[in-house]
Computed example of a mutant assay.
Amino acid sequence: MLTVESLKKSYDEAPGRAARRKKRDTTRTYAVGGVDFEVNDGELFTLLGPSGCGKTTTLRSIAGLERPTEGKVALGGRVLFDSAQDVNLRPNQRGFGMVFQSYAIWPHMTVAKNVSFPLEVMPRAKRPSRQEIDHQVAEVLESVELGAYAQRSATKLSGGQQQRLALARALVTRPELMLLDEPLSNLDAKLRETMRFELKRLQRELNLTAIYVTHDQAEALVMSSRIAVMNEGRVEQIGKPREIYTRPATRFVAEFIGTSNFLEGKVVAVNGGEVEVDTPHGRLVAADPPRKPVVGDPVLLSIRPECVDLSRERRGLPNEWTGTVRTRAFLGDVVDHIVQIGDTEIRNRSNPTLSIPPGTEVHFSVTPDKVTLVPVG
C-alpha cells in the first residue's frame, strides 16, 4: 500500500533549489539517513526507537509536514513525494488521518463538533450533506465508544476519552492511512496499558492501515503487525514482534527490545543446525541461527533473562554453568536474580515461587534454541 524508498532528511539547510543541488553532499548530517519500508493493507506498522532516532521525522515526511531532502513516498501507486521528479503534495492532498502526541482537541467545541469539523471544512464539491455528516459522526463516535458523550464539552473528557476523540476525528474522513505519533505518551501507566488493547481492537475491527510511532517497546510488541526498529536515522531491523524479540539482527535491537545477557565468543564448530561457541567462561551451543557463521567468526551471544534456568543442583543439561547469586529483586509477577559467573553477571527472570538467597551456589542453564547469535560489526 505505502512505499517509502531511500528517504533522507537533513536540517542543515532549508529546503529549496540550493538544498536540492547539494542533496548528495556527504558532509551533511541526516536526521533520517536512507529509510526503506512498505506498509501493507490492514497492517499496523510501528516505527520504534529512542528519542532522536528519526522516527517522528519519517512520519512527518510521509504526512507532508516535512519536506524530505531525498527519496520517494507513494501510496497505492500514487506518488506523494519524489525528489527526483520534484513532486511534493501538500498534506491536505495526501488524504491521511493523523493523531498527534498532544491530541489538539478544540476546547470550545463539543465532542460531536470536534469530529464533524474536518467534514464541514471540506471543499463544497466534496463536502457531504448535513445529514450524511451527522450519520458519519454518530457512526465513528460509536466505534470509539463515545456515542453517549456527543454533546459533552471536549474539555470534560478524561485523558483516555480525549485520546479516543482525537482518533475519531482522524477516522471520520475515512482515510486510506492513519498516522499516529506517540498518542499514548501523555496517559498514566495504567490507562496507557488499557488503551494499547483498545487501539489494537479498533484497528482490527475497522481494518485500519496505520503507521504508529513510539519509543515504548512494550507498546510496539503488543500492538504491531510489524516493527521497524530505528537507530540514528536508519532502520536496523524490520519484522514481526516475536521475530524482533527472539531473533534480533543487531546488538542495538537486542538491547533496545527487552533485556538481554550478552557474551562475546568465537565459533569453534558448525554441526548441521547447531553452532558451538567458545566464551571466556566456557562453551555454549546455539541452535538454528538465521545466518550460519563459519568457524573462527567472532559472534555475540544474546540470552533473554526469562530463558535462563536456575537450579541449586547440577542436572547435566546443555549449556550448564555454575555461579553464585549476587542479588535478587522481587518485582511482583517475577523475581530477578543476578548470578555471578567469573567476572560476568547473568540476569535470570523466574516465577516468584523461585527465590534464591544471595550467596547461594546455583547452576545456570539455557537450551540451545534460546541462544541467539548476533553478528558482530
Rank of each mutant, 00 (worst) to 15 (best):
V172P: 05
E132V: 13
E132M: 07
R94W: 03
L208A: 07
V115A: 05
A125F: 00
L202G: 02
E176N: 14
A189W: 10
S129A: 13
V99K: 00
A228Q: 10
L171D: 09
M122Q: 14
N207T: 12
K156E: 15
D181Y: 01
P107I: 06
K200P: 08
F197C: 11
G95Y: 04
R130K: 15
T110K: 10
G147F: 08
L171G: 07
Q217W: 06
H215S: 00
P183A: 05
W106P: 01
A220E: 06
N92R: 10
I227Q: 11
L119W: 03
F100P: 08
A104T: 03
A168V: 04
L146P: 08
V137H: 03
R226L: 12
Q162R: 15
R124D: 10
A150W: 02
S153D: 14
H108W: 07
P91T: 08
E176D: 14
Q161N: 11
L191D: 12
F100Q: 08
I211G: 08
K126R: 15
V111A: 02
V115I: 08
Q217F: 11
V140Q: 00
E193S: 10
L184H: 09
A166V: 09
A125W: 01
P128C: 11
K113D: 14
A228M: 10
T110W: 07
Q131V: 14
A112C: 06
L165Q: 12
K156Q: 15
G95W: 02
A104K: 02
K156P: 03
Q162I: 09
E176H: 11
Q163K: 05
K126L: 14
S185F: 04
Q161R: 05
A228E: 12
V222H: 08
M230P: 01
E193N: 12
L177H: 01
L141S: 02
I105Q: 01
K190A: 14
A125V: 11
V115M: 06
S225Q: 10
